[in-house]
């Protein structure tokens, strides 16, 4: 196993395996019910019984973090899927058509890239209403510009290849060639980039959820957990800092693996 030479990779893979389990079957990992009080112990500090302590309603915070993985990561996943899809479509069309369409659309893409991602996401949330889906779509829109640029560059590269010319000579129609021949050959760098963007999307989604635009209470979305703990930061700082550290760890792990996928050792 060559992977074993990179200790960072081993830790990252283990952490993501646990996270994946928390997404698929949170009940296996969580010691308590995330929505029910576990007794009368309010704002209890971390202990072996309650790893992350208990919140102001005496709920087990560790269990809430475990159950929150699904909400937070699916919103981040939605963001990446939305960003890749929108970006790929724009990149495919502009890169294939070139000319005026390309020039006009890409100038707008430049502007979408220049507008801070969180501001774009806030506009989407303000129009669509609050919730993880709106947050995911908003964050995805912010990343779509970068995807569009990379996709367009790939399409322009692939278009010049001989097999595209061959497909056209054989009578293939534009859309067919795009989907059947250009897309598969242009997709590789997009996949590596999508992995990197997932880490950033987790950060952006948790920031928006921290601001109160994600899943509404009592849903245990990660950013919302940090935000809820913030009210008690003077007396029980672990309530917000421990879930925050979980977000950080997952972001670093995803980032490490994404860089490995992208060819960095």
């Amino acid at each position: 196993m060559r992977l074993l030479r990179y200790p960072g990779m081993i830790v990252s893979i283990l952490l993501l395996a646990v996270t994946a389990l928390a997404v698929i079957a949170p009940a296996l990992l969580a010691p308590y019910d995330p929505y029910e009080s576990v007794g009368t112990m309010r704002l209890a500090p971390p202990s072996w019984e309650h790893l992350f302590g208990t919140d102001h309603l005496a709920r087990d915070v560790f269990s809430r973090v475990i159950y929150g993985a699904r909400l937070s990561l699916s919103a981040a996943g939605l963001a990446v899927v939305a960003g890749v899809t929108l970006g790929a479509v724009i990149g495919l069309v502009t890169g294939y058509l070139r000319g005026v369409v390309d020039a006009v659309v890409m100038r707008f893409v430049d502007v979408v890239i220049a507008i801070p991602g969180i501001l774009l996401a806030l506009i989407v949330v303000a129009s669509l209403g609050f919730g993880p889906v709106a947050v995911g779509l908003g964050v995805g829109l912010g990343t779509s510009g970068a995807f569009a640029r990379v996709m367009r560059a790939q399409v322009i590269r692939v278009r010049a290849e001989e097999y595209i010319e061959a497909a056209r000579t054989l009578g293939g129609r534009g859309p067919t060639i795009l989907v059947r021949h250009v897309l598969p050959n242009a997709a590789r760098p997009i996949i590596a980039m999508a992995a990197l963007e997932l880490a950033l999307a987790i950060l952006a989604v948790s920031a928006l959820s921290f601001l109160g635009f994600g899943a509404q209470p009592p849903a245990p979305e990660w950013g919302a957990l940090v935000s809820a703990g913030r009210d008690f930061v003077a007396t029980a700082p672990w309530l917000s800092i421990l879930p925050g550290l979980v977000i950080l760890a997952v972001v670093l792990a995803v980032n490490r693996i994404a860089r490995y996928v992208g060819g960095e050792r």
Partner: peptide
């Protein structure tokens, strides 16, 4: 990679 709310809360 560090969420700004985490940095802020730790500093506070």
């Amino acid at each position: 990679a560090v969420p700004a709310f985490l940095t802020g809360l730790v500093l506070i």
